[in-house]
């Protein structure tokens, strides 16, 4: 499974940091891999609801999960209401830098 994270917008909008970044989940440390997979499964069962409006200077996170079933895209804006989504974004950012 491959997960791609794109961060868009924000008060400090840095185009150099806005490029999509990917991680192969199989290359993650075992404990992190287990947590990420659990979060992905939870999101698949109950996808986050998209926000109807965009708050000024809030960032938008696009998560593309690509596995044997094909790509699935989730897009959330700050503040991220869905705790699972927020946790997944944190874990991805921790790993991707």
């Amino acid at each position: 499974m491959r997960i791609t994270l794109t961060i868009d917008g924000g008060l400090v909008y840095l185009p150099a940091r806005a490029a999509p970044r990917s991680v192969d989940v199989d290359t993650l440390p075992a404990n992190v891999r287990v947590e990420v997979c659990a979060l992905v499964d939870a999101l698949r069962q109950s996808p986050p609801r998209p926000r109807s409006s965009h708050a000024p200077d809030a960032r938008t996170y696009t998560i593309v999960i690509d596995d044997r079933n094909g790509p699935t895209t989730y897009r959330v804006s700050e503040p991220i209401d869905d705790a699972r989504c927020a946790a997944l974004v944190d874990k991805l950012r921790d790993h991707l830098g």
Partner: peptide
């Protein structure tokens, strides 16, 4: 003190963060 190592600020329509 919103989030962890959070490098942003925004107005959510009712308050600043």
């Amino acid at each position: 003190h919103y989030g962890t190592r959070y490098d942003n600020a925004f107005w959510n329509g009712q308050q600043m963060v």
